Simulated scan of single mutants.
Amino acid sequence: MAHAIWKGAISFGLVHIPVELFSAVTDNALDLTMLDKRDFSPIGFRRYNKASGKEVKWEEIVKGYEYKPDEYVVLSDEDLKQANVQATQTIDIQSFVDASEVPLTYYEQPYFLVPDRGGDKVYALLRETLRKADKVAIAEVVIRTKQHLCALLTIDDAIVLNTLRYSDEIRDTGELKLPAKSAKTAGISDKEITMAMSLVDGMTEKWNPAQYHDTYREDVLALVKKKVKARQTKTITMPDTETEEKPRSAQVYDLVGLLQQSLGKKPTPKTAAKSSTKTANDKAVKPVSIGKKAAASSTAANKSKAKPAAKTSKAAPAKTRATVPKQRRSA
């Protein structure tokens, strides 16, 4: 059963709503243990006294603020609470805004708010008010030792508290090298926009989060199972430079042709000619070595050129070596 990580109340004007805070997400990241490469023993970390070098138990550890080099003020959990009791126990709503006004880059971590004893009715009142007003509540709350700006919004029957980043934590996009704002200045034609919109329309569907899952994690776990079955648990796979995929060129030569292909249309002859010409100019042709048997066949073929062929046979597709994804070691 989930455990509340914070207890307090939502302050809504003169109304107080007793609530508990629960994490809204679960971490499904691969839990990899660091090992010593020499004998594959797990590596451990210990808390120790830097003066004596001796290990310190959890119950002997306290927190301190370094107010000058090597001088600390000890702060207990009670000290941190008494510094501002109301801030540590209250989700203080400051204002209400349209959800569309809060950029996605500000959202940080979601939590579920659950009504505590006696808070069901006022909890439901705030939930329905937010829903009908189509607003989010902007509030402040102290969780552990940090004050957070947060947004309260409704999802299904729950009020979600989503911590927000402060404005000074968001980098200015002016520092980035981005294309020009207008389509014309960026070199985008109306035809390209129209075709891109058609592609978007064709790929539009209802949001169904259940259809997406972490396929990379599944592939890694399948690899683990394969290595266990093959008794290769202590085998370290090194990078294979021969099969390493080369990065694609960042330059796009024929955007219209690519859009047409994406829409299931064949490129026009003019477009295809441009693409093949540029591709041919970009890729150097590798010399092919011919063996004795192949050379003899080539000579015989040259002698028979004088005789007209009854039927023109289609050239067999060239065989290409499949690219094997590079195996990487995880730390």
Rank of each mutant, 00 (worst) to 15 (best):
M1L: 12
I5D: 12
W6F: 07
G8E: 00
I10C: 05
G13I: 02
V19C: 00
S23C: 07
A24M: 13
A24G: 07
D31P: 00
M34N: 15
L35D: 01
S41G: 07
R47W: 01
Y48S: 02
V56K: 02
V56R: 01
W58Y: 09
I61D: 00
V62F: 04
E66P: 01
E66F: 00
K68N: 12
V74Y: 08
E78F: 10
E78Q: 11
L80P: 01
K81H: 12
Q82G: 08
Q86Y: 06
Q94C: 03
S100A: 12
P103E: 08
T105H: 14
E108R: 13
Q109P: 15
L113W: 00
P115N: 06
P115Q: 05
G119A: 03
K121W: 04
A124L: 10
T129M: 15
K132G: 04
A133D: 05
V136S: 01
V142T: 12
H148M: 09
L149P: 03
L152G: 01
T154A: 00
I155F: 13
D156F: 13
L161E: 05
N162V: 12
Y166S: 07
D168P: 00
R171N: 14
G174C: 13
L176N: 15
K177H: 10
A180S: 10
K184D: 12
A186R: 11
G187A: 08
I188L: 15
I188Q: 03
E192W: 12
M195S: 08
S198V: 05
L199E: 06
M203T: 08
Q211F: 02
R217C: 13
E218W: 15
D219W: 04
V220D: 04
L221F: 04
V224D: 06
V224P: 05
K225S: 15
K225V: 06
R231Y: 10
T233E: 03
T237Y: 13
E242N: 10
E244Q: 05
K246F: 09
P247Y: 08
S249G: 07
V252L: 12
D254Y: 10
L259V: 01
Q261L: 11
S262V: 03
G264R: 11
K266N: 09
K270Q: 14
K270G: 14
K270E: 13
A272E: 06
K278S: 07
A280N: 13
A280T: 09
K283F: 13
K286E: 09
S289V: 02
S289P: 04
G291V: 03
A296I: 09
K307C: 01
K307F: 05
K311T: 12
S313P: 00
P317E: 07
